[in-house]
Design a protein around this nucleic acid. Structure first.
Length: 289
DNA sequence: CTAGGATCCTGTCAGC
DNA sequence: TGCTGACAGGATCCTA
């Protein structure tokens, strides 16, 4: 569920809390959520946290890394040993951010020197995977990722769309092998920004529209990253305040029934590519413009 | 090769 | 209250 901006926000946040800490102990509470030998991570120090699309890679000493993918419902929550210090939570927003941990959804616990990192994941689609550091780029998931919008020029993007002429444009931009970083929220927001109906076949998208869409994708994800809190990652102070960042940010996502801020038409929720999809039916016509 | 749908798993919510 | 089905901020696998 976390998309590129959330994962980037988590990366930055966790860097501030976990770098240079040793992993003292790992408790795996769900075998499905942890792939590989956990023993070789014990005693290693966290040197760096990298991001590949929506996946995080923790590089440890000893030439070993661990990839963490949150998929739909994963969360990473850091709690300091000193309860007066700030904690950090990011990922699928639930009350676990503020709860006593571990809780029912805790799948892996990383005990560090100064605190504890909890990997929570309601649906168990996410995972932690141990990989030798020099093989990270060869991992089949990471290897298959397309460039992010900032690293793709508009001609390249248009050509990629035209390779999937008969798929809905929304399905195409959700495919991480075609363009990397968008998920269900930012796909809807980018299509709204570019005034393109999500159910249109990619082959009907003009070059000019593709340019707008690529710009829109950059714009909505940048805005989210720059908002600091992003849409769901959030710093949790000792007094724990909750904020709905998504509502501040999203123009269409989960706004069905509300007026479009561009034209006042009621936002609708439809189904495209098997996913809940939010559009302004007036701004996003089914034909090219 | 592409395109579509089912699937992994758990929880919540609307409707009866 | 209790049941049922739909749905969920992702990605893969299977089928045609």
């Amino acid at each position: 569920m976390p998309e590129l901006p959330e994962v980037e926000t988590i990366r930055r946040g966790l860097c501030g809390f976990c770098l240079q800490q040793k992993i003292k102990r790992i408790e795996v509470r769900s075998d499905k959520s942890f792939i590989g030998p956990k023993e070789i991570l014990i005693g290693q120090r966290i040197d760096d946290i990298r991001r590949f699309g929506k996946a995080l890679v923790f590089d440890l000493t000893g030439n070993v890394s661990m990839m963490i993918h949150l998929r739909m419902t994963g969360q990473l929550i850091y709690r300091p040993n000193n309860k007066k210090s700030d904690s950090f939570a990011g990922g699928h927003p639930t009350d676990s951010f503020f709860a006593e941990l571990p809780d029912k959804q805790t799948r892996v616990i990383f005990e560090l020197e100064k605190g504890t990192l909890f990997f929570n994941d309601q649906r168990k689609f996410g995972f932690v995977k141990v990989i030798p550091t020099e093989e990270v780029e060869e991992d089949s998931f990471i290897k298959s990722l397309a460039p992010e919008p900032w690293d793709m020029d508009s001609e390249d993007f248009y050509e990629r769309l035209m390779r999937h002429k008969n798929s809905c444009i929304k399905a195409v931009i959700l495919d991480q092998k075609i363009i990397c970083g968008l998920g269900n929220i930012y796909a809807d927001e980018a299509l709204f920004d570019a005034k393109i109906h999500p159910a249109r076949l990619a082959g009907t998208v003009t070059k000019k529209e593709a340019d707008r869409l690529l710009d829109g994708a950059k714009k909505v994800m940048e805005a989210s990253i720059n908002s600091g809190g992003s849409t769901m990652a959030t710093y949790v102070k000792a007094d724990g305040t909750k904020g709905d960042y998504l509502r501040l940010f999203a123009k269409v996502f989960r706004r069905e029934g509300e007026p479009c801020e561009r034209c006042g038409t009621e936002i609708e929720k439809i189904r495209v590519a098997g996913r809940g999809t939010h559009i302004c039916p007036a701004c996003q016509k089914r034909s090219a413009k």
